[in-house]
Amino acid sequence: MSGHLTRRALAGGAALLATPRLARAQAWPSGPIRLVVPFAPGGSTDLTARLVAEGLGQRLGVPIIVENRPGAGATTGTQVVADAAPDGQTLVMSNIASHAISPALYPNLRYDPVTSFTHIAMVITNPSAWVVNKDSGIKNLADLVQAAKARPGGLDMATSGAGSSNHLMVVRFCELAGIEHTHVPFRGAGPAMVAVIAGQVTMMSDSLPSAASHIRAGTVRPIAMSSAERHPGFPDVPTFREQGFDLSSTSWFALSGPAGMAPAVVERLHREVMAVIATPTNQRRFAEMGGTPGDMTPAEFSAFVASEVARWAPVVRASGATVG
């Protein structure tokens, strides 16, 4: 993007041509910016959006209105942004559900996760932690596989919901390990964690931000982390790869807009988002939540979304979860 600007600055003869585009870039932002969160208030997508909105609003000098449009696996709110004008005034908090899993889950989706959007900036990524009841005697994935083989119907595995990235990880793992499992979905991570603490369900795949406090408090035992490398906040928890399973997955929260946004606006937004997540306070908040600040150019992020879509589609099919 910066290359584009430089080229334009150098090409004096193109000044006339460039003027309208420049004017458009200067006119942006032309008022409050709508940031659509495709989930209900209080979840991790919502929290991330509000953190970004606070800092971004200050830097851009306009209010950022966070608008929750939950529903249909995050596709309802995402569709709204896909249909909006690409003037930079309407953005969406894109995430693994809206842009990687739901496209495979909802066959009648009207948007394409890659081409219907301008992907701007990765905000935060976080791995999943697999935790077990602390009296279960399971200390690692090998124990888990053994326990699963010993029980008819396999091991009980809790997740925050059918079709969530955590559910799909469980499906993929059991394929790799050649074991059966009984998937026990809950409405959200909270009730599922209670069931694991109470010992009603043996194991849970949970995203790190919601599992972190329980792991730190020792109420559940972590047995594996889904990141490619060990997580700096939890250096004692081995990854799946270290334990012999070729599995890694990170959940992500990012900023996207409708397709066809002006490159100058995209460049400015990307720069400001990077500045917002780089402040020491936000770095500390992200670390507390167990997340890693995003570090991708808009082009890299677009390619990443495409790779995520390709990667989750077969897993969704294997899980048997479909909608519509």
Binding site: A40, G42, L47, S213, H214, R216, T219, R285
Partner: peptide, 25 residues
Amino acid sequence: LGIPANAVMALMVGALIIQGIQPGP
């Protein structure tokens, strides 16, 4: 337990997390 019982509680957990406090045991 750090487990919100309803949507309002979930928002309060959010407020605490933003403040850098993990509700919980």
